[in-house]
């Protein structure tokens, strides 16, 4: 088997007394789309945020393209021990609350980091940003500020912003949870397209339909551990574990 794009081994994370992740192991292959499901508080968002070191784990190892990105959290001094540059240039993330820069237009949201981080010229960054915003269907909104855009539009700008950095892996942290129901589809459509183009994606979501249709693998988490994982047809249609059955029963009732 080829080297996994992302490998998580024995990831543990606690917030004070609360043990959020209790030793999670998972490999994600290049081009694979993995959906992480689970009740709130199961640790799925925290796990996702570990991958790009927004929440550095206390224990465990994270490999991205074979490189150990947290060489012993205990050994280094603060941020110096983390390979932040390596990680953040390869891993893009989209947040539940969009987190667009409100003082920048849609276009500027997508060009800012290209210029400051990748050192691209203004023209280069603009060209790339325009292309990406067109791709997510916002070619006519380039100069609008986030507050004038709908939630779905804002989230698509956020996806374009992450893609502008040419990531090898994309993380999606409940990106449709803050959206009105009628705006969910436009965001999922963009993500579906991205998956078809072969992007490696880790998606924390409550959208069972999306997971069923797009995911190569579904991971079900509860209480800080992976309870069950496998192809969507297997996990979603005939879950083996009782906790998975219970969760799916609650979610699919609606």
């Amino acid at each position: 088997m080829a080297e996994p794009m992302v490998r998580l081994q024995g990831i543990c994370k606690r917030f004070g007394e609360l043990e959020v992740l209790k030793g999670v192991d998972v490999d994600i292959a290049k081009g694979e789309v993995v959906c992480i499901l689970g009740p709130s508080g199961s640790g799925k968002s925290t796990l996702l945020r570990c991958v790009n070191l927004l929440e550095p784990p206390e224990q465990g190892e994270i490999y991205i393209e074979g490189r150990d990105i947290c060489k012993g959290p205990g050994s280094g001094t603060g941020e110096q021990s983390w390979e932040l540059d390596f990680v953040r240039q390869r891993v893009g993330i989209v947040f539940q609350q969009f987190n667009l820069f409100p003082h920048k237009t849609a276009l500027e949201n997508v060009t800012l980091a290209q210029e400051t981080v990748l050192g691209r010229s203004k023209q280069e960054a603009r060209a790339k940003a325009t292309e990406l915003l067109e791709r997510v269907g916002l070619g006519d909104r380039l100069n609008q500020y986030p507050e004038t855009l709908s939630g779905g539009q804002q989230q698509r700008v956020a996806i374009a912003r992450a893609l502008a950095m040419d990531p090898h892996v994309m993380l999606f942290d409940e990106v449709t949870s803050a959206l009105d129901p009628e705006l969910v589809k436009e965001v999922l459509d963009v993500m579906r397209e991205l998956a078809e183009e072969g992007m490696t994606m880790i998606v924390v979501t409550h959208e069972i339909g999306f997971a069923r249709e797009v995911a190569d693998r579904v991971v079900f988490m509860d209480g800080g551990v992976i309870v069950e994982q496998g192809p969507p047809a297997e996990v979603l249609e005939s879950p083996r574990e009782e906790r998975t059955q219970k969760f799916l029963g609650l979610v699919l009732d609606h």
């Binding site: 790009n52 927004l54 540059d85 953040r88 240039q89 891993v91 893009g92 993330i93 947040f95 609350q97 987190n99 667009l100 820069f101 409100p102 003082h103 800012l112 980091a113 400051t116 981080v117 990748l118 956020a158 912003r161 992450a162 950095m165």
Partner: peptide
């Protein structure tokens, strides 16, 4: 300025200084 702004800037690879200069301070002064 919401924590998410810093997270977004840092996730895009900006340094602390870049995040402050381009994202946090312009919003803070308003």
């Amino acid at each position: 300025v919401p924590e998410g702004q810093v997270e977004a800037a840092r996730s895009l690879g900006m340094s602390h200084g870049q995040a402050m200069r381009h994202v946090v301070v312009p919003q803070a002064v308003t």
